[in-house]
């Protein structure tokens, strides 16, 4: 009997150890917290359907100089590209503690604006140079947005694709969710002026004139999705999909549609 009790104690102790390690691993998860979309009235599609309207603002940086966007264990990575939350006029929210995991309501319209501060190259798969899955399959592009004057420096235009040799990054939502009609959104983000990006980086900041892409998507049924960048922008490893591309919360995140 004593032996059985001692064996039982070993089992309890063992599971205690496992629980401890599990808690440690779970706590060490370098994932940023959830960001909810901001409510903004209603949105009517060209077909005349009306949805509750929400907005999300994001930036894409040539480096990850502030860590909060990438969760507790993530941290700054000056040699990695990254996404991050943006203010109303594309200003970097350097203090934000969340950044890449989004919660949006189901059956709503979400307008996403992305300021792209990085330069670019030719995309390996030109499938992702087209705007896909947004309302009207289009996006609104401002090739130079003046972040000081809070105004468009060039005229906004509606685009369905961008030249495949001028892609900075992409914002692509896809996923695991089990719905028959899954959400799929892919929007290419054009490169900013190469020289300006380099000059700004050397000066320790970001270019004053990023490109700005605005598009609206309809969220569909609830489910778990992810988004990531489909432009290979990691380090020099195979297919340039390592480092920032293969670490959660830099060039990827969750996209959670809630009922």
């Amino acid at each position: 009997m004593k032996r059985i009790l001692a064996a039982l104690a070993t089992v309890v102790l063992g599971f205690g150890v496992i629980a401890g390690i599990g808690t440690y691993v779970a706590a060490a998860k370098n994932d940023s917290g959830l960001t909810s979309a901001t409510a903004a009235g209603t949105f009517t599609t060209p077909e005349g359907k009306t949805y509750p309207h929400y907005t999300l603002n994001m930036n894409v940086y040539p480096n990850s100089t502030f860590g909060g966007h990438h969760g507790a264990g993530g941290g700054a990575h000056p040699d990695w590209v990254s996404y991050g939350l943006a203010g109303e006029h594309g200003e970097p929210l350097t203090e934000a503690s969340t950044g890449t995991n989004f919660v949006v309501p189901a059956h709503s319209a979400v307008t996403i604006t992305i300021w792209q501060y990085d330069s670019g190259e030719t995309i390996t798969n030109d499938f992702f140079a087209k705007v896909r899955g947004t309302v009207g399959n289009t996006a609104t592009l401002v090739e130079r947005y003046d972040t000081k004057a809070h105004a468009n420096a060039t005229e906004a235009k509606t685009v369905t694709q961008i030249p495949s040799d001028g892609v900075g990054h992409t914002f692509t939502i896809h996923g695991l969710a089990d719905a028959n009609n899954q959400v799929f959104v892919s929007v290419p983000l054009p490169m900013s002026n190469d020289d300006e990006v380099t000059a700004a980086e050397e000066a320790g900041g970001f270019t004053q004139f990023p490109t700005m892409m605005t598009f609206t998507i309809i969220t569909g049924d609830e489910g778990e999705y992810v988004w990531n960048c489909e432009f290979p922008c990691g380090d020099g490893t195979v297919a340039r999909f390592g480092s920032a591309m293969s670490t959660m919360s830099y060039m990827s995140g969750h996209w959670i549609v809630k009922g």
Partner: peptide, 27 residues
């Protein structure tokens, strides 16, 4: 065995979510 238990704990629910994807792949 401990790593196996972590895997199974993560897969107990569909969303996973207990462990981070990179950490999960490594485990």
């Amino acid at each position: 065995g401990i790593l196996a238990m972590l895997i199974r704990a993560n897969l107990g629910t569909p969303e996973g979510g207990l462990i981070h994807p990179q950490a999960y792949n490594s485990i």
